[in-house]
Amino acid sequence: MLTENALEIKNLTKNYKEFSLQNLNLTLPSGCIMGLIGENGAGKSTAIRLILDMIRRDSGEILILGQDNRKHPEILREDLGIVLDDTGFSGCLTPKQINHIMKNSFRNWDENYFRGFLKKLSVPDHKQFKELSKGMKMKLFIAVAMSHHPKFLILDEATNGLDPLVRDEITDLFLEFTRDETHSVLISSHIVSDLEKICDYIAFLHKGQLMLCEEKDILREKYGIVHCNPDQLRVFPENVVKGKRITKYDAELLIEREHIPNGFPVSPVSIEELFVFMAKEET
């Protein structure tokens, strides 16, 4: 059954002593990839652990593939492929043994797909987990996450610590995964360039608050960077400037294109620049 949205989060709140995730609202339509961007400690992992019900929310509602995430999560996980940073298999297990474990865990485990995946990603199946490099470990996690044919991949910092070649290889896998319109991906990372390459939607988290959530192409069309000298700053009302970088000799302003007066040079904004400008403005 195709649900309209892979993920719906309404007013999600979690309070810790020194950090709060406040009123998070997100919707990820089925068939799309959403990137969750934020600095370290912005709340990305907290949000993902709340989605997976690994930590208890204080308030709010989470629907995954149309179902409440707290109602029979073990059944729901049959349709989820999950990769979390900082989790692990027992160091003594080999990919071959992991295959047997997963075969006895997931209803739809596809042994041939898993073996093919490992071969494709050059992960040796007789080496113990503790002997694998970080890149190999991550590839193994991704192979496990995808070999029971899930509908929705949830990936927390799945590309961190990997070299650019491996990251490119892995992000291509996610793109291939969403060719099926029933498949969706939520991926968090602070490597914005990876997300810029593959995501349809971008959500910015900053200090526990959602700054914006929008289609990537709309964001690029909507915003531009204006180049001017510091004396010209007063031309732009404070409320239209979403971020700025000012030096003694020049200034760069992040502004919605519709508010940019004629005559100013405007350059397109990358998602990384957009995030840095906005996060700095908030700081």
Binding site: E74, E78, L84, G88, F89, S105
Partner: peptide, 14 residues
């Protein structure tokens, strides 16, 4: 120690 306890939360087990 090996963070399996955390990983097992991603598997279809209650």
């Amino acid at each position: 120690k090996e963070r399996w306890s955390c990983y097992s939360c991603t598997l279809p087990y209650s």
